[in-house]
């Protein structure tokens, strides 16, 4: 029986754990493993042991968003057993994090895995959020002075509620100037299969997004999600717009990591 309006579950940050599960996501695995490694090393530097379940593949989000819930569920079900201990699951992506935290409960409603899915949803965290609010990370900037812009993905912003996190982490970096793009909250036009089904609309969106990043004067932007990264960076590259993208985790690790020590 339906009684209430949908409510975003309140985030209650756990105390800093000894161990976490790292859920790498398929885009990081194939295209941006550096960002994944950077995230792992940032966690380890905080004294956290990172467990990387070998059986991880994909969270199921592409099929889910396309309406193929049977397929999404069977893939997601194969991931549920990867996290047997009660440790937090950290994800270097707002989009996959959002899938696990917000959509797993719906996807597994009325199934035997329902309570398992709910439990996993409750301990899934977007990685930058986790670094800032659970690890209380203190970043020491070792890099040269530079200016960057930031694009927070829509899922990181709206599903994971971490719009403020990236800028706060960047503000810890003494030599980094963060410049804000116009219409920061606007979508870059990726949207998974949207970019394929509606290529022209998607292109118009990413073009505007790249332009507003260029307009900040920065030549580099960082982002929370690989989808936005390959979309915006790829568009800028193809149309020779003077801006390059990078995953925020790679950037944070480069600025503060042992490479500099």
């Amino acid at each position: 029986m339906k009684t209430e309006t949908a409510q975003t579950p309140v985030k209650i940050y756990p105390p800093k754990p000894d161990k976490v599960y790292f859920y790498g996501t398929c885009l990081i695995d194939l295209f941006y493993p550096d960002a994944g490694m950077a995230g792992i090393q940032l966690l380890e530097r905080e004294g956290i042991e990172v467990i990387f379940p070998e059986g991880q593949t994909c969270c199921g989000q592409p099929a889910y968003s396309s309406g193929y819930h049977d397929q999404a569920r069977s893939v997601a079900a194969s991931q549920l057993n990867l996290f047997p201990e009660a440790w937090p699951i950290v994800v270097p992506s707002g989009s996959c994090g959002g899938m696990m935290r917000q959509h797993y409960p719906d996807l597994f409603a009325d199934t035997p895995q329902s309570s398992q899915a709910n439990a996993i949803a409750a301990r899934t965290w977007e990685l930058t959020d986790f670094l800032l609010h659970v690890c209380h990370i203190q970043l020491k900037d070792l890099g040269e002075p530079t200016t960057v812009a930031m694009h927070t993905s829509c899922s990181a912003r709206r599903e994971m509620g971490v719009a403020e996190v990236g800028p706060q982490l960047l503000s810890q970096l003494a030599n980094v100037t963060l410049v804000e793009q116009a219409r920061a909250a606007e979508c870059c036009g990726f949207g998974g299969t949207f970019a394929i089904r509606h290529p022209e609309i998607s292109a118009a969106m990413v073009s505007d997004k790249a332009d507003s990043l260029v307009d900040t004067g920065a030549t580099r932007f960082v982002t929370t999600d690989c989808g936005c990264l390959m979309n915006i960076h790829g568009h800028a590259e193809q149309s020779h717009k003077p801006i390059q993208g990078e995953h925020i985790l790679s950037f944070l690790w480069q600025r503060t990591g042992e490479a500099h020590s």
């Binding site: 968003s65 829509c154 709206r158 909250a185 606007e186 979508c187 949207g191 949207f194 969106m205």
Partner: peptide
């Protein structure tokens, strides 16, 4: 399908 599911509407 004509949506990137960005969520601005729901917000």
């Amino acid at each position: 399908s004509a949506s990137s599911l960005c969520g601005a509407c729901g917000e």
